[in-house]
């Protein structure tokens, strides 16, 4: 028995474990996101940060340092250029515009397929499997988790109701994922019942 638990746990850690925040944009692609924001019109660095935080940052605003580090990386790469400098000091006075190369880069990034990533709530998964292995009712785990999931889904539904299109899209993204979790849980619970029935009989 003990060895089996070990194998399961090893199997669990073989998966990349990532808690998905309600952020479509991964850290690696802040640069492309900036380029996308600049495509419509040139903007000041401050505006770019504000827009990013509003649309994609949510609970975690970007640090100014990260904003200017990214902008200077883009400048170096020739993807943006300084369009105008307001009188005064500091990088926040600079207005940035996208270059031809920048437009191409955004286009390439947007059309490149993202690698599908299997999400796994490792803790939840572990709990369910352990409940099974120790003969506890998986349905209880499911019920508790469903209540928690639904609480979050209610928050998201409420935010979606009051938010703009981007907000709705983000919330939907999260809602569908949460729903998928629950469906997996329900299926697992049903499977376990079935399994229990065959074991008993």
């Amino acid at each position: 028995m003990a060895s089996r638990v070990q194998t399961v746990e090893q199997a669990i850690y073989r998966y990349t474990h990532r808690v998905y925040v309600m952020c479509i944009v991964a850290g690696m692609s802040i640069g492309q996101t900036f380029l996308g924001l600049l495509e419509a019109t040139p903007r000041h660095g401050y505006d770019i940060k504000r827009l990013y935080d509003e649309r994609f940052g949510h609970a975690r605003p970007l640090a100014y340092g990260q904003v200017y580090a990214t902008l200077s990386r883009l400048l170096r790469g020739g993807l943006v250029e300084v369009d105008a400098v307001e009188p005064g000091e500091g990088p926040e006075r600079k207005r940035y515009a996208i270059t031809e190369a920048g437009v191409t880069d955004v286009a390439q990034w947007l059309t490149r397929a993202e690698k599908p990533e299997p999400y796994l709530q490792s803790t939840l998964y572990t709990k369910v499997v352990l409940a099974l292995l120790t003969g506890r009712p998986a349905a209880d785990v499911l019920d508790v988790q469903r209540a928690e999931h639904l609480r979050m889904m209610r928050d998201l539904t409420r935010r979606k109701r009051d938010g703009d299109l981007a907000e709705q899209l983000v919330c939907d993204h999260a809602l569908f994922h949460l729903e998928a979790d629950l469906r997996w849980l329900e299926l697992t619970a049903a499977r376990l019942d079935e399994l229990a029935a065959t074991v008993r009989s």
């Binding site: 209540a147 639904l150 889904m153 998201l156 569908f176 949460l178």
Partner: peptide, 11 residues
């Protein structure tokens, strides 16, 4: 459907 149930106050 959980997404539909999410419109509720309580389940």
């Amino acid at each position: 459907e959980a997404r539909v149930a999410a419109y509720s106050d309580r389940e």
